[in-house]
Design a protein around this nucleic acid. Sequence first.
DNA 1: CTGTCTTTTCAGGAATTACTGAAAATACAG
DNA 2: CTGTATTTTCAGTAATTCCTGAAAAGACAG
Lengths: 202, 202
Amino acid sequence: MPRRRPIRHAMETLSPLVRDFVLHFGEMGSRWGINRTVGQIYALLFVSPRPLNADEIAEALAFSRSNVSMGLKELQSWRLTQPHHLPGDRREYFAAPEDVWAIFRTLAEERKKREVEPTLTMLRGALLQKPSGDAERHAQQRMREMHDLVELITLWFDDVGRLDPATLVPLMKMGSTVSKVLEVKQKITQLAGGRARTATAD
Amino acid sequence: MPRRRPIRHAMETLSPLVRDFVLHFGEMGSRWGINRTVGQIYALLFVSPRPLNADEIAEALAFSRSNVSMGLKELQSWRLTQPHHLPGDRREYFAAPEDVWAIFRTLAEERKKREVEPTLTMLRGALLQKPSGDAERHAQQRMREMHDLVELITLWFDDVGRLDPATLVPLMKMGSTVSKVLEVKQKITQLAGGRARTATAD
DNA sequence: CTGTCTTTTCAGGAATTACTGAAAATACAG
DNA sequence: CTGTATTTTCAGTAATTCCTGAAAAGACAG
């Protein structure tokens, strides 16, 4: 996991604070199927007070210009950054969104599109096959369980993701006490003769 | 991304149904920092109607015995499977937990331990430093935003994860309508003179 | 157009990660 | 203990992924 490449003159201009942050996300990126370079570039953009161009990134992280180009391309494909132009400057400048919630949401959406959807499609395909024998029947049953769980979590995530942070944050801070409130709600609904019906469960 | 290794005589015994499932999770694994082998082994265990020993796995997936051994070791370190003994058989047998919720929970717990906790620790360390100049002040502000978001999501996840599926599933099926119920709750709390206070939002 | 600045592509080499077979370690029956 | 069955380790190699410099492509002012 440690990279022993001779550090050329890397990150000389970065303060230790930022450098550690950048290195950490480089490492994390590599555990998430995103490569180190891409993780570091995004970390740098994330903490930068202003948009950066590719040369500035290459300089700060001691990467080749072409490596930065590829990294930025990947980040754009994840919709995590997009190029901006500054008046009177031909170069493209990149920044991370201001809103951390927006970043999180985008990340979740992209992962869903790239990983969850294909998995659900595969599982649905498998469930349509006619099982031949007990082993296949069992395998399908397991796949069904997985499918249903993944689908439930995904739908719910979509749903919750549509709330704006102002609503969502208090909700999350309540944590599991939400379920207690729901018990209360049950009773009220009964008392009110079913008038307050807000959820029908699918 | 596609692996062009000449397939020796791989997965001959597996039905197409299971084979596709196994291959899919091999691919997915490699996007998640888990290697292909490990993903395939777990997929196989997941759909298997009975526990399997290492030789059976090696045979079914056409991996070397030692590769299977390493894969199983990794899966055990994730607490996703553990060895069992069958009476009168010296070999160890492995299975995935019956309950898909339990698997999901374990996965979430391990990822938290391995990725989220270290990140929070790093961020807290960074936030303790005294910023020197505007750039550092801004970087710290961004790190604080990230820290608070990650912490909020994690605490909430812990909280919700403690609910049993029987409570959680209906809650998730409600999706965002939960927030509507909470508005109702607000009013009730007021009517009841603050007695029903269940959440204090830190 | 032309020339310059900028970004992208890509072949090849560097670094890392994955996998294997052989040997060592472990477990356990007798 | 001894011998056998089983698992683990590990050095070497195979495969993959990453990164670079050079060249091509693109953008745009004049």
